[in-house]
Design a protein around this nucleic acid. Structure first.
Lengths: 338, 338
DNA sequence: CCCACCTCCCAAAACGTTTCGGATAATTTA
DNA sequence: TAAATTATCCGAAACGTTTTGGGAGGTGGG
């Protein structure tokens, strides 16, 4: 509970000097600095970040806005891993993280800007936000620095980090084509997510490059949910025996497809090849283990925080985005068609 | 950026009145209150929580101290799920969460108390802390309210939440005994974790109650790691063909045991029954799916935050602990011995 | 008509820092 | 030796709130 005043009194100097001594300014004698530091230690002083924030108008805090931070995120450890990366990068440069979890109910009550300004966060990282989320417009309008994860928006104070989703999807599809598949379906997430659009684009692009027909009814809607993907795949595969492979826009949905295949007594990978996207932890443990496009989620978080803090300190280049590479992880759900 | 002063000026009243009006005090005329609220809205005012914290000496923030928040936690989604629960409960009562991630390096630099006082958190939830962590002593000494997850410490300002680990282990072992197993091994985590001790206790207790011998060399050390459990189990099972079942103190280690069994060409559950602990997401997806003792991790977090906030507001009963029930989840890794 | 008591409002202090603009004394420069 | 510079320190204001301790003005009772 000792304050800077207590130190000043105990050390026989002014508060100004204490402040400047403790903050390493040059205009304080080395001897008095030592003395001040000692009494500070003796009084078990620790600075009050709140008071400092108030006067400096800087909180050394970045907000982490996760849409629907809840149990459903437990399966794909996406959010968690991204958070780890953010946390590491942020604490490297002395920033703390404050968690804003929002749901649609709360969003009604408090605007984005309010949330940020109340807590005086210097910048925000947004994760798991859909493209039509009203917060997004607010972000652009406000001038609070912000970086998005997996939403490609750039602006004066906003940047983003994502992976090369188009190319990732292309890799997945190319792999299937190389194995000899000609009828390749895709189960996509909802189109509110930018990644869905990108992955669909990659799927179509690769088919076109291989001069294979792009059939509209070959792309199913899985809504990023295991169950929804399962039923969509089940209905589709039952009546489309010619398709020998499916590319899923997420691993979780790929699990659904696997489940559907099992119900239809299709063996994986002999009767049906599957490749997913994300490389969630689960995908190594399914039987057979899932071939997928791996994204480095930790790295995404790390880069996001790096980007943001460099925007905040303003010293770095005006780099506002980062696009990470993906890689194809060959496991056991793909094989040549029979 | 509008402050309370701006509102006062615009509305033609004093800052005192603005403050009291906005905070719902009774001694301000309903008409002026309306007027003030309107001008506040017009000026797009949002209160500065930092300034408020400073003067009130309350930050409406609780610290979340997670030991080693990192990628290795990705497999068992334990931390994540607990966090979700904490987050929900905290935001129910208007508290925000600030993330302290520590590692041993950082602990050296900054003491627990410093961390908390700097950020002026009102209380702390500690998760993933080992029993010999130096922070624990500090917590007791400081008078900052704190609740632990899975470490049973009680005190003036400290409480905890955990599940009934002894009974959980008993359920697991009883299940195996009921199936007819007589030679039941256990792979335990490191003894720095309180849960390890409890689960071991439950294991031994249940064996004794069934009047089965408790052999010391039947309990292996898995260190809460999949790989370590695997090699320990491999060495043990190779030379102890009489054991037909193993109880693992965590699901992750159970996965290691399953892997070891596979290498030894032991079929699960015919040749070897396995029951885990935790009910991590993965355990539903292994083949065969893992029978385990389920803990409600979300609930643990929720209760932890509830406990803490009720300690902070001080209005609730002096309840300082919560012990949640576990339940046996029968899946497919257990069967009668041959 | 005076006193007591509401109702509604306000000035000023306080929270713990940082920082601006000097001030003093010592040292160097011309 | 006077002037200029440097080294070291300090007082006071500022950040945006809340809260304490009143102060007007009005109303009712006696």
């Amino acid at each position: 509970m000792a304050t800077i005043k207590d130190i000043a009194k105990a050390a026989g100097v002014s508060v100004t000097t204490v402040s400047r001594a403790l903050n390493g300014y040059g205009d304080v004698n080395e001897k008095t600095r030592k003395h001040i530091e000692e009494t500070a230690k003796k009084l078990n002083y620790s600075p009050n970040a709140v008071a400092r924030s108030l006067v400096m108008n800087k909180s050394q805090t970045i907000g982490l806005l996760v849409s629907e931070l809840n149990r459903s995120g437990a399966k794909d450890m996406f959010t968690y891993e991204v958070m780890c990366g953010i946390n590491d990068a942020a604490s490297d440069v002395g920033y703390d993280l404050i968690l804003f979890s929002t749901n649609t109910v709360k969003q009604k009550q408090k605007s984005y800007t309010q949330l940020c300004r109340e807590r005086q966060v210097e910048g925000v990282i947004m994760q798991g936000i859909k493209k039509d989320d009203p917060y997004i417009k607010e972000v652009i309008d406000s001038n609070i620095p912000c970086v998005f994860v997996d939403v490609e928006i750039e602006g004066e104070n906003v940047g983003f980090v994502t992976t090369d989703n188009v190319f990732g999807a292309q890799m997945a599809v190319k792999h299937l084509i190389n194995l000899g598949h000609r009828h390749i379906a895709m189960v996509n997430g909802h189109d509110k997510a930018e990644v869905s659009q990108k992955r669909l684009k990659g799927y179509m692009k690769e088919l076109e490059e291989a001069e294979l027909p792009v059939k509209e009814d070959y792309v199913l809607n899985g809504g990023f949910l295991e169950s929804e993907a399962e039923s969509a795949a089940y209905d589709f595969l039952k009546t489309n025996r010619q398709v020998t492979a499916v590319f899923s826009a997420s691993d979780l949905m790929a699990l659904g497809v696997m489940r559907a295949a099992r119900r239809l007594e299709l063996n994986i990978p002999e009767d049906l090849s599957i490749v997913g996207f994300d490389d969630i932890v689960l995908s190594q443990y399914t039987s057979p283990p899932l071939t997928t496009i791996g994204q480095d989620k930790y790295q995404m978080g790390y880069e996001a925080a790096k980007l943001l803090t460099s925007m905040l300190t303003g010293k770095n280049s005006p780099q506002k985005k980062a696009v990470l590479d993906n890689r194809l992880l060959l496991r056991e759900t793909t094989a040549p068609p029979k």
